[in-house]
Simulated scan of single mutants.
Amino acid sequence: MSSNKEVIRSFIHAWSRLDANELADFFSDDGTYHNMPSKPVVGKRNIKLFIEKFIANWNSTSWDILTIVEDGDTVICERLDITRTSTGDVHLPCCGVFEMQDGKIHIWRDYFDLNTYMKGITP
């Protein structure tokens, strides 16, 4: 059985494949994905649909783990997300807080500066 930290490492690396089905499978059925500047998305199906829309204009992405720590069912991961989109490129410092449940992401809160993201994707 993988540690929660290893599950999150796998999840972070899975983003490079830009597969919404694969990414949603990391969540529990009642999971929550919350980009802190926005409203939370609840439920695996809704998370999949959100990710599909979110990455629709992404050409590639690579998320570099800077720091990752695990304390019980909580994993905190500081990252640099480098994303190439059809409208521009983004180098986005982020910090994700993951609450795990039975090896799945139950709640993911991602903290980043929305202006940095928007400046990168705005032509």
Rank of each mutant, 00 (worst) to 15 (best):
L66T: 10
N59A: 02
I51C: 07
V69F: 05
V69L: 12
K44G: 09
W63E: 10
D25G: 15
K48P: 00
V69C: 10
S62Q: 12
K44R: 12
R79H: 03
T87E: 11
D71K: 13
T74D: 05
G43H: 03
K44D: 13
S28I: 02
D73E: 09
W58C: 03
Y33E: 12
D64Q: 15
C77E: 01
V41P: 01
G43D: 02
T85Y: 00
V41W: 06
G88Q: 00
D73V: 04
D64Y: 15
E70Y: 02
P40T: 12
N35Q: 13
V69D: 07
G31Q: 03
I68K: 02
E70D: 04
F54V: 04
I82H: 07
P40Q: 09
T67R: 13
C77G: 08
A56H: 11
F26G: 09
R79G: 08
S60K: 03
S86D: 11
I55D: 11
V42K: 15
D29T: 04
M36E: 05
C77N: 03
T85C: 02
W63S: 10
N35W: 08
N57A: 10
R84N: 13
F54G: 01
N59W: 00
L49Q: 15
P40D: 07
N57K: 12
V42S: 13
V42H: 13
V75M: 02
V69I: 08
D89T: 03
D81P: 06
P40I: 10
T61I: 01
S28F: 04
T32D: 09
E52F: 07
M36G: 14
T32M: 12
G31R: 01
R84Y: 04
H34E: 07
N35F: 08
F26S: 05
I68V: 05
N57T: 06
I76N: 12
N59G: 03
I65H: 11
G72E: 06
W58A: 12
T87C: 05
K44V: 06
I51P: 00
R84K: 14
C77W: 04
G88N: 01
T83F: 04
D64T: 08
L49D: 13
D29M: 09
V42Q: 13
R45V: 03
T61L: 06
E70W: 04
K44P: 01
A56N: 08
Y33T: 07
I55L: 14
E52C: 08
K39F: 08
K48T: 01
D30E: 15
S60I: 01
T74M: 06
T32H: 09
V42N: 12
A56K: 14
Y33H: 13
R45N: 11
F54Y: 15
R79L: 05
G72L: 02
F26Y: 10
P40N: 10
W63G: 06
E70P: 00
D89N: 04
G72I: 01
I65T: 11
I65G: 11
I55E: 12
W58G: 07
D71F: 03
T74V: 07
T87L: 02
V41Q: 14
E70C: 02
E70R: 05
S62M: 06
T61W: 02
T61M: 09
C77Q: 04
T74H: 07
W58I: 02
K48Q: 07
G88D: 01
W63I: 11
H34P: 02
K53A: 06
T83L: 11
D29F: 02
S86Y: 00
I55T: 12
T74Y: 05
V75L: 00
